[in-house]
Simulated scan of single mutants.
Amino acid sequence: MKSSLAQPVSGAAGAGARYADLPRVALTAFAPVAWGTTYIVTTELLPPGHPLFAGLLRALPAGLIALAFTRTLPRGRWWGKAAVLGVLNIGLLFPLLFLAAERLPGGVAGTLAAAQPLVVAVLAVAVLHESPSAWRLGWGLAGLGGVALVVIGPAAAFDPVGVAAGLAAAASMALGLTLTKRWGRPAGVGPTAFAGWQLTAGGVFLLPLTVLEGPPPAIGPAAALGYLWLGLCGGLIAYVLWFRGVTTLPVNSVAILTLFSPLVAAGLGALLLGQTLGPVQIAGFGICLAAIVAGQLPAPARSSRAISVSTSKGTSR
């Protein structure tokens, strides 16, 4: 009689599935690449001292545009779920990121954000009931170390408020990502509507808080360009592609793509601000890229011999 146990996917089949995911991974990676521009746009284009206002302009207009385009609203329990996800992924995240970017060098802020894959690896066990994986934790630590090599210099400043904001941003995004994976996307709802729900919910959450920040700043041409870039590319387009990837790819594979953000921030600093990248930084780049690639691969399984032995034991009972 044939064994009722599920057979493991062969190496060729598994590799084929992974290759089929590459276009989706590339599109999803656009989001953290776009987010990596946040640091230089914030410091070079936006008026300082208004992180809540910057987060509001990044979220609410983009969300309303998505809702107007799709004409799709949440139904039933999804009103509450969309609100929770919007607060975690947008409402809390945006001002915390802007606050960290204002109070810390981009490198330090980027390194704190790079802790997110580690948090996701832990939450995947607690929330998604996945098995603990030394592979995911190991590459998450390697990626974090690589980012630190790239962006933290000897003169890095560690402002306590900025550090707390950076860590809170990483935790908020990690929890939002994990819950997005757990709840999925409602049937018949596309990624644009799904992103619109969350951007709008996050913007509505930020609206009353922005009042506490005082009068909005004067917006000149440079600031207008910065807000437009962050709202369109770093908000609407990025989140549509991000949530499409989150709901269709393994959660840990998506999480480790966020390592692109600090790499882009460091690259832009070298390209536009004259910051130099020495051998240590280049080595850090290599480690980060290796972690990103490894994060798209399945954890090494037991050898085929061990699997066949355990299968034969199970069928002989």
Score class of each variant (00 low, 15 high):
G55W: 06
F243H: 14
M1Q: 07
G176W: 07
I256Y: 02
L128P: 10
F69T: 15
T28E: 06
W35V: 13
R185D: 12
A114V: 12
A201M: 14
S303N: 04
P47C: 07
L175Q: 03
R58Y: 12
P298A: 03
A66R: 08
G196D: 10
V211T: 13
T180C: 01
V254G: 07
S312M: 10
L99S: 12
L271T: 15
L118H: 06
G184Q: 09
N89D: 03
H50M: 06
T210C: 04
Q281A: 15
A223R: 10
L52D: 02
T178G: 05
L99R: 04
G295V: 11
Q116A: 15
L5V: 13
G91K: 07
A266V: 03
G107V: 03
A270E: 01
S10N: 09
P208R: 09
A168H: 04
W78T: 08
L297G: 08
A100W: 01
S133D: 11
A54D: 08
P154E: 00
G63Q: 13
L27G: 10
P132L: 02
L141S: 12
S131I: 11
A283Q: 02
I282R: 00
K181I: 09
V204F: 13
G80S: 01
P32V: 12
G314M: 13
G295A: 11
V119A: 14
L64D: 11
L272C: 07
A59H: 11
P186G: 10
T28Y: 13
T258D: 04
L167E: 02
L228N: 04
P61D: 09
G107P: 05
I152L: 06
Q198N: 09
A193R: 05
G55E: 08
N252S: 14
L273C: 07
K313P: 00
G16H: 12
P160C: 00
F30Y: 15
A155Y: 04
F158Q: 00
A283N: 03
A62G: 11
L149V: 11
T38P: 02
F53G: 15
A174W: 05
Y19L: 15
G220M: 09
V211N: 01
T311P: 00
I237F: 13
A301D: 13
L228Y: 02
G202S: 10
F30Q: 08
L199K: 07
P160G: 00
G267F: 06
V254Y: 11
G274M: 03
L85P: 08
S3H: 06
S261H: 08
L212E: 05
A283F: 13
V161N: 00
T42F: 01
L149S: 05
G162Y: 00
L56N: 06
G234W: 09
K81E: 09
W197Q: 04
A31G: 12
T70R: 03
T258P: 02
G110S: 11
I219G: 04
G188A: 07
G86K: 10
T210I: 02
P23M: 06
A265L: 03
L259G: 03
N89T: 11
R305A: 15
L144K: 09
P215K: 14
V246C: 01
A113C: 03
R77E: 10
G140N: 10
L27I: 14
G86W: 12
A155S: 14
L118P: 10
G16T: 11
R136I: 08
A31L: 04
P216Q: 09
Y239F: 15
R185I: 15
L207D: 12
C288D: 07
A171S: 10
S4F: 07
A148Y: 04
V9N: 03
A270R: 00
T70H: 02
